[in-house]
Structures are given as structure tokens and as C-alpha cells.
């Protein structure tokens, strides 16, 4: 759903009016951007080499140190198994990032393909594909994901599949709009008259020109997917793993909020920080990749 909103921000602008903007960016924008990039780099580092960054093994339990508040030994405190919350957050980044990135990758590829075919071929194919996308859109994303996740059974990959399904319509619509807009441009029409094959035109001219908004949307969508994944954990179809992802940590820790606030607060902050950073980067990308805005950003 979040992707759909972003899509609309873009489509809305494009369809409505040509615009010229100037001096949109505050000077402090760079600071924010660097901070966001640093946060993402940090999380990526956690996901790649958690054992370097985590002070303890994430599965180490100790019934002598249950629910201890943050201290020097445990900067984020310990949870109800006596595990170190900081280590859990560091290790949990792997699956959390995986859920975010993989579901957007799948949703983006599938949705992009549907949109591209639909827009480029048009006609009946277009009608059928777009009705199918409408069908997906009538079911609220959370419920669709809930139903699919319970149908497939709890596993990380199934959760990714469930989340990605809800992102398909947004990508499909965006890609279709892009393709439609580009395929009727004069130079495309011209190259067709020169005798380049349909596919050749698509591959050489339409696709490269239609990709950038998709990339922007994908970036913005990563945050949304992580949130949807944690929502699934809340609704009871989370994945039980030796090392839980952030959504699962947050969801399991929430009933301890009044007695041990740190158990769910730090995973929650990690989610918030990641989603926030991804959004900042996404905004920046949108400005960079938008041909009409190129040169304005920074």
C-alpha cells in the first residue's frame, strides 16, 4: 500500500502538470542523506558480518540474567530468555533486510514485467493483466499477506512471498504508465518506421527510459515491506527461528513493555531507523533520477 501511495505521488505529478522547480533542497539535506546512508551501511554491515559486531552469541540464554535493563555489559539490556538484545538486533538485521529487499525484488520484477508487457503490447493483454492487478488491489494488502502466509505456512521465504504479492500492483501500474508514456514519443515512433523490431525498440529505448521511477519506488518500498512483515508477526503468522527478525522480536517483546521496555524498543527503533533511512535515500533517488529534476538535487 505504501508503494501505491508513492506511485501515485509520481503518477499524479506526471499526469497533472509539467513543473519547473528550483532550490527545493535545504542545505541540511546532505547531512540527512549522509546519516541515512551511514545507517543503511551499518545495517548492511550487521547483516553481512554479525559475529564481528555483536558482543554475544544471539542464542546464548542465561536464566540468571533475565530482563536486565541496559548496562555496560548489555547496552540494550537482556530479554526474557536472558539473551543480549543488542546481539539479537545485530543478528536480526539479516532476516529483516532479507524480508525487505527480497520481497521488493520479487514484487518489483513480477509487477514490472506485468506492467511492461501490459503497457507495451496493449489491447486484450493489457485489459486482462490490468484487471488481474485490480483484483489483487481489492484485497487489503495486510489481509492478502495474512491469508497467503497462513496458506503457505510459516517460513521466511513464505513470508517474503506473501509480502511481495501485495507490492505487485503498484509496480505493475507504475511500469505500465511509464511504458505507455514512452512508447508514443516521437523518436520511438521514428525508429519503428526505420524498421527496428518491436522487441529491439523495447529493449534499447523503452526499457532503459522507464526504469528509473521503478528503482525509486523499489527503494521506498523496502521500508513498507519490513513494516508489513512485522505486522504479520503481530497477527500471529510470524516465523519462529533460532534468531528472530526485528518484526518478530518487536511483536514477541510487546507484552513486556511495562516491565522491560528495552526488549521491544530497540528492535522497534531499528525498524524505524531503517525505514526512515530508506525513505530519505528514496526521496533523493527520485530527485536524481527524475529527468526533469536532474541537476537540481544537491
Amino acid at each position: 500500500m505504501r508503494e501505491r501511495l508513492n506511485l501515485n505521488i509520481m503518477l499524479g505529478k506526471r499526469e497533472l502538470r509539467p513543473y519547473r522547480t528550483g532550490g527545493l533542497r535545504p542545505r541540511s539535506y546532505n547531512v540527512l542523506l549522509i546519516a541515512a546512508a551511514a545507517a543503511i551501511a551499518w545495517f548492511a554491515g550487521c547483516a553481512i558480518a554479525p559475529d564481528w559486531l555483536a558482543p554475544y552469541p544471539p542464542t546464548e540464554m542465561s536464566s540468571d540474567s533475565l530482563m536486565q535493563p541496559p548496562s555496560w555489559a548489555h547496552p540494550f539490556g537482556t530479554d526474557y530468555f536472558g539473551r543480549d538484545v543488542l546481539s539479537l538486533v545485530v543478528y536480526g538485521s539479516r532476516d529483516s533486510l532479507f524480508i525487505g529487499v527480497a520481497s521488493i525484488l520479487i514484487g518489483g520484477l513480477a509487477g514490472g514485467a506485468i506492467g511492461a508487457i501490459s503497457g507495451y503490447i496493449g489491447g486484450l493483454t493489457d485489459a486482462v493483466f490490468m484487471r488481474a492487478v485490480d483484483v489483487l488491489m481489492t484485497i487489503p494488502g495486510v489481509l492478502l499477506a495474512l491469508a497467503v502466509a497462513s496458506a503457505l505456512g510459516p517460513s521466511l521465504f513464505n513470508m517474503v512471498a506473501a509480502v511481495s504479492l501485495g507490492t505487485i500492483p503498484g509496480f505493475a501500474r507504475l511500469m505500465r504508465g511509464q511504458t505507455l508514456g514512452i512508447k508514443n514519443r516521437p523518436y520511438i515512433v521514428a525508429s519503428r518506421s526505420v524498421g527496428v523490431t518491436r522487441f529491439g525498440i523495447y529493449w534499447k529505448h523503452v526499457l532503459p527510459n522507464s526504469l528509473s521511477p521503478l528503482v525509486v519506488m523499489a527503494t521506498l518500498g523496502i521500508g513498507g515491506s519490513i513494516l508489513t512483515g512485522s505486522g504479520l508477526s503481530f497477527l500471529g503468522v510470524g516465523v519462529l527461528k533460532e534468531i528472530p527478525d526485528w518484526g518478530e522480536l518487536l511483536s514477541q517483546g510487546r507484552s513486556y513493555l511495562t516491565v522491560a521496555w528495552w526488549i521491544c524498543t530497540f528492535p522497534g527503533l531499528a525498524i524505524a531507523l531503517l525505514v526512515l533511512s530508506v525513505n530519505v535515500i528514496g526521496d533523493w533517488l527520485r530527485d536524481r533520477l527524475d529527468p526533469r529534476r536532474r541537476g537540481e538535487a544537491n
Binding site: 526474557y80 505456512g153 516465523v239 519462529l240
Partner: peptide, 25 residues
């Protein structure tokens, strides 16, 4: 009850048993 499984997983790891926790409805 699922948290019990998480603990048992660690307890049995100590005696060399690999526990595969499966959640099903």
C-alpha cells in the same frame, strides 16, 4: 509454548541434538 521450544532447542544443542522447530496451524 513456542518459547519453550526455543529454550529446548538450546538445551538439546548442548547434548548434541539439533532441534528443528516447526510451527503449524
Amino acid at each position: 509454548r513456542n518459547d519453550i521450544a526455543v529454550i529446548v532447542q538450546q538445551q538439546l544443542k548442548k547434548i548434541g541434538i539439533e532441534v528443528e522447530v516447526v510451527v503449524t496451524k
